[in-house]
Design a protein around this nucleic acid. Structure first.
Lengths: 347, 347
DNA sequence: CCGTAGATAGAAAGCGCTTGCTGTGACCCC
DNA sequence: GGGGTCACAGCAAGCGCTTTCTATCTACGG
């Protein structure tokens, strides 16, 4: 029923081996023969059987990308950049790879399960994006998995995530701590002293690093770090809204709010608006990531721009072996403070 | 080097066939034997070889999702919903499927190439999302490809796209025309008569349908459709900005702008702001899709909400055979007009 | 002219798994 | 107590491709 290599070979009057070689183009085949084969392929509408060739050649053209939330542009941008580099359609000849995007939803188990699934597919490479889950047990399990993947020849790259200990996975780490520090320093520099902080979910490296940066800035400016001014929540708009309401309840006098990311910041702005407070006149707001919509917020959001596209593209190239990994296997990617309308001096 | 079924069989003192049966769980195996096998699997850290089993069983657990732009939440939401339904980690036992998200960037060639790649992988199902490219030649090529995929046993579902003629692919179509009509009718009802329209890229079904709805509303209200008030551009913020500037140049007197989608609308708002015009006091703005950030825009965007998550989930279920396709293979998904602060009567 | 290197093509042995068919005891019923 | 049924387990034949090794054939140099 379905056309196989043998059918093509028969029609082109050559052996299956020759057809395979024409298709893979890594062995000399006379031009005339090649053409005959190619015509047969065309006539028969032949499409290679991926699993069969993966089995025989012990390689696959699948690349896995693990993300926390595919609906979040933060990950979408990275995933898109990776895909543009792993040579999907566009990079002719042997360079056709498929990106398998796996949505972990931030769940440790799913992270592991997807990794197993990818291992089962004998993926050519795996890229883990976003913050790591900070749990010793999970970290150990993850490291084990990554080691086994690497052993099996799968290249592992971390993008926007700290290096994984006990592993030689290449890591492109975002400088969340530095970004957080500069952001809060900017606010303190404007004269704010009571700064609320809406942190991301606990046990997440991104959350911790950004928060540490914030605290470092407070310390550097001699401002007391009031625990009541920090609230944790998921990385979504709702969380920003609720946390802001809570923060306002706890400390009506605060003059600025730093959010875990831009989406959360948008929720914070909405809450302030609903409470009749103006941004930045009454309360300044700052985000993180500089997603595309942030510049269009009103007022435009002060935030830390992370070069998501560049980082994703680089991760993709490294995963494909098209670019040398950074020395030591770790590179830090810095963010840039974008001061915009949502922050100003306190009233 | 790598552990195979045979190794597990040897350790469990059974035949490879038995191990396979335990792993696939579709054939009676005595509890004691099963347990022995499972222990061996565990001891050896055995992971099934996907390509090998796909070859032998002639099935695969890959599901392809074609999107125009993975960084656009419109597609991200759909992709996430699909993935949640195709039984990735969570749905135990045989239900572990991997979603291959393919970024076509709106290019017809890439659409076709990705389909071939997916066919090569013998994907279990393929879901095409977003508007179709309206080009006879491409449509024919696409229909042929889809037919061949279907023949090979791959289930094909269209989500947010009109039915593909000459094909029996199931289609979940968005009522873009109706949504567009209601949106413009809303504006006309408020008293607007000079309404600018920022359309999406040409040759896209989505663009055409929304525009047709817009025109239908104009006609219904007896308002002349001035061609100068329609500008085409890509579905991004930049396009909205530029188009608005152009629209303002051509018709400084316009009192409302309808954008192809929310992202474009945000760009339009920015342009108006930069021109010193206020929304909705001077110019009303409306979008389409109701993406998560739209409610947080200032003023909140009037738009048409499309049930992206629901549609994606349903497409996923149909692709998995978990839900009956709609009668006739086609279902229309309606949008809901969300009237918010960005639209008001003309000054 | 013959021996030999170089360029192609083919034969065949897998790659690791699934599954139809074939045993083989154990069990049950009359 | 014998034959028929079950419930399991194993054998072995592929699945469709890649690739090593070998066979040809051509072209040259001496």
């Amino acid at each position: 029923m379905t056309v196989t290599l043998a059918d093509v070979a028969a029609r082109a009057q050559v052996s299956p081996a020759t057809v395979s070689r024409v298709l893979n183009g890594n062995y000399p085949v006379a031009a005339a023969t090649r053409e005959r084969v190619l015509r047969a392929v065309d006539d028969l509408d032949y499409v290679l059987n991926g699993p069969a060739s993966a089995l025989a050649a012990a390689t696959s053209d699948l690349v896995g990308i693990l993300v926390n939330d595919i609906a979040d542009p933060f990950f979408g941008i990275i995933a898109g950049a990776v895909q543009s580099e792993i040579g999907g359609p566009g990079g002719r000849a042997g360079g056709e790879r498929l990106a398998v995007v796996c949505n972990t939803g931030g769940s440790p188990e799913r992270e592991l399960t997807y990794l197993t699934l990818l291992q089962r597919q004998r993926a050519a490479a795996v890229i883990l994006t976003g913050g790591a889950i900070e749990d010793a047990e999970h970290a150990a399990a993850l490291a084990g998995k990554l080691r086994r993947l690497a052993e099996a020849g799968t290249r592992v790259v971390l993008c926007g995530r700290p290096p994984a200990p006990e592993t030689d996975a290449v890591a492109l780490t975002f400088d969340n701590r530095g970004g957080g520090r500069r952001l809060t320093a900017h606010l303190l520099g404007l004269g704010h002293r009571r700064v609320g902080y809406i942190a991301g979910p606990r046990e997440r490296s991104t959350t911790r690093h950004r928060l540490e940066g914030h605290r470092a800035a407070l310390a550097a400016h001699g401002v007391e770090d009031d625990p009541a001014l920090t609230v944790h929540g998921p990385y979504d708009r709702r969380s920003g809204y609720d946390a802001t309401v809570e923060l306002l309840r706890r400390a009506p006098e605060l003059t600025a709010v730093v959010a875990a990311n831009d989406t959360v910041a948008l929720g914070a702005c909405a809450a302030l608006r609903d409470k009749g407070l103006r941004t930045p006149d009454d309360v300044s707001v700052a985000g993180f990531d500089d997603l595309p919509f942030s510049v269009d917020a009103v007022p435009a959001l002060t935030t830390v721009r992370l070069p998501l596209h560049e980082a994703g593209a680089r991760a993709g190239r490294i995963a494909m072996g098209k670019e040398e990994p950074p020395p030591g296997g770790v590179a830090t990617v810095h963010g840039e403070l974008m001061v915009r309308g949502s922050t100003a001096g306190p009233r």
